[in-house]
Design a protein around this nucleic acid. Sequence first.
DNA 1: GCCACTTTTCCTGCTT
DNA 2: TAAGCAGGAAAAGTGG
Length: 175
Amino acid sequence: MLDSVTHSTFLPNTSFCDPLMSWTDLFSNEEYYPAFEHQTGYSFFNDAEETKTAIKDYADSSCLKTSGMKSQDCHSRTSLQSSHLWEFVRDLLLSPEENCGILEWEDREQGIFRVVKSEALAKMWGQRKKNDRMTYEKLSRALRYYYKTGILERVDRRLVYKFGKNAHGWQEDKL
DNA sequence: GCCACTTTTCCTGCTT
DNA sequence: TAAGCAGGAAAAGTGG
């Protein structure tokens, strides 16, 4: 059930503040639990205690054990552990409260989005990859490579990109 | 070690 | 002039 729920969905105010924090770190830290209590994504749990339990169970499940997790298993599961740049961008877009205005949808239905804070995005990606020399110029070069594979489509506007036919998981009704 | 794939780095030229 | 985009080339990193 929780497989499609992103890390940032759980922790809207924490995940990108410390992108290197592990699931174990997050779930073992009681300070973060209150944040779940007000998330609409968890309205299906009766109360905060139930939410905690569900999350803890999920954190304890074998699929989230760091040692046993393969990149393929988790690449689409969480923004923090997405192995590919486009998934990182996608997950950031799917958590508008957490991306601090770095990315925003231009046309949600068509998958068109805009990079609002290019330097911040590059910095965030750099943190994700433990590369403090990352720049938006380099990041955008990587994004342009996705044109070839159909993951992104070209949009003739500055800082605007569009998810292509080979990108998945960005459509609201297919989450 | 090899290969495929993705990403990074650097570059030139063009556009806004 | 600066910032951003396009794309070539080479190299690094990673996983199978």
